[in-house]
């Protein structure tokens, strides 16, 4: 009788040990498996704040890339770290915009050969600012809420802007300044990037 009771006690202890082992192993396996499968997506959900650095012909966001949730306000801290004037501008059709500026400056140069490159860039800038702003407002009405869709920065200058994206999709940001790349724009050197707006 005594030995049977002792056997029963051993069995309970054995079963308890096995059960604890199995539960521990299963829990750690599930946790590890979850991190292995979804871990790469856990570290980077859409953020609220992005730092966007501008320098000679690159727009470098941090973290990279810019991913934003629909309807959620996002703060962009934009810093011009380059030595030329840069801008961040939302464009609907990058190719059309870049060609428009390029052709306008080439035409102006042909018509007025006495003007210097700086003067041409200034005139093109002035002429297009109003048109661009109207175009941007029209193109992004109901898609982006923000104070301005075209942010110009002098070298060393920085600013903080808040946007709310209302439709999912890819939004292209680019710099269409010409300083140093005349008559082409900075965008043609690769100075553009994308804002990925996702649902959720």
């Amino acid at each position: 009788m005594a030995s049977e009771a002792a056997n029963g006690g051993n069995n309970v202890a054995l079963l308890a040990a096995i059960a604890i082992g199995v539960i521990f192993f299963a829990a750690t396996s599930v946790a590890l498996g979850y991190f292995m499968v979804f871990g790469e997506n856990l570290a980077g959900p859409p953020q609220d704040i992005y730092i966007i650095r501008l320098s000679e012909y690159v727009i470098e966001p941090e973290p990279d890339p810019i991913i934003v949730k629909v309807g959620q306000p996002v703060v962009f801290r934009i810093v011009n770290e380059g030595s030329a004037e840069h801008e961040v501008m939302f464009v609907a059709d990058l190719e059309m915009m870049a060609n428009m500026i390029k052709e306008a400056s080439l035409r102006l140069q042909q018509e007025n050969p006495e003007l210097s490159v700086e003067e041409i860039m200034e005139i093109v800038d002035e002429r297009h600012e109003m048109i661009m702003e109207e175009m941007l407002e029209k193109a992004f009405a109901g898609k982006i809420e923000g104070e301005e869709l075209m942010i110009e920065l002098e070298p060393g200058e920085s600013t903080v802007v808040t946007f709310t994206f209302l439709e999912p999709g890819i939004y292209i940001i680019a710099c269409l300044k010409q300083e140093g790349t005349f008559p082409g724009t900075h965008a043609e050197e690769g100075m553009f990037n994308q804002v990925i707006v996702v649902e959720g």
Binding site: L94, E95, A98, E188, F192, Q194
Partner: peptide, 17 residues
């Protein structure tokens, strides 16, 4: 990875350059 039209813009401007 860019939307195709943006990639084309980059590719063509690089070719021109």
């Amino acid at each position: 990875v860019l939307p195709p039209e943006v990639f084309d813009f980059w590719y063509e401007s690089q070719s021109e350059k």
